[in-house]
Amino acid sequence: MSIAFTFPGQGSQAVGMGKDLADAYPEARAVFDEVDEALAQRLSRLIWEGPEDELTLTANAQPALMAVSLAAIRVLEARGLVLKDRIAYVAGHSLGEYSALAAAGTFSIADTARLLRIRGNAMQAAVPVGEGAMAAIIGLEQADVEAACAEAGKGSVCQIANDNGGGQLVISGAKPAVEIAARLCTEKGAKRALMLPVSAPFHSALMQPAAEAMREALAGVQKNAPSVPVVANVTVSPLTDPEDIAARLVEQVTGRVRWRETVEWFAANGVTTLYEIGSGKVLSGLARRIDRGIATVNVGGPADIEAFGSE
Rank of each mutant, 00 (worst) to 15 (best):
I137N: 02
Q62S: 07
S94C: 01
N121M: 14
Q10L: 08
L169A: 05
R258H: 09
L116E: 05
L21Q: 04
D244M: 15
G293P: 13
F107M: 06
Q252G: 06
E37I: 03
G173S: 04
L95I: 15
A4E: 07
N121R: 12
A88F: 13
A150I: 02
Q10R: 12
A22E: 06
I180C: 07
Q41M: 13
D111C: 00
P26C: 05
N233T: 00
L239F: 12
S99W: 09
I305K: 14
L196A: 04
A104G: 12
E34N: 10
D20Y: 04
E27F: 07
S156G: 07
S2M: 11
A150N: 07
A61I: 02
L70H: 07
V157P: 07
D244E: 15
K84E: 15
Q124L: 14
P197L: 09
I294S: 04
S227M: 10
S310I: 09
Q13N: 10
E49Y: 01
A88N: 12
A268P: 09
F7A: 00
A133T: 04
D291G: 10
E216G: 01
A200G: 07
A205V: 06
S69G: 04
E77N: 14
G50E: 06
G120S: 04
Q10C: 08
D244P: 07
G50A: 10
G270H: 13
V299W: 14
I87C: 13
A122S: 11
S2N: 12
G80Y: 04
I171F: 03
I277P: 05
T58G: 10
F32Q: 00
M195W: 01
P242F: 11
P242R: 11
M195G: 02
I305P: 13
A103F: 02
A100M: 05
V90W: 09
A135Q: 04
T112H: 11
R258D: 05
A303I: 14
P63N: 06
N224F: 00
T235M: 09
G11N: 02
V170L: 09
I294Y: 03
I137R: 02
T106A: 06
P197Q: 14
G139C: 13
Q208T: 03
I277Q: 05
G105F: 10
A22K: 03
M214P: 00
V299E: 09
E34Q: 15
A71G: 12
G18E: 04
I160C: 04
A24L: 00
G80S: 03
S108C: 07
E131K: 12
S108K: 06
S2T: 10
A205Y: 02
S284N: 14
I180V: 14
L21S: 05
L283E: 10
L184F: 04
L70E: 05
L169G: 06
S108A: 04
I138H: 11
A232Q: 13
Q252E: 14
H93D: 06
T186L: 14
P26I: 06
Q142L: 07
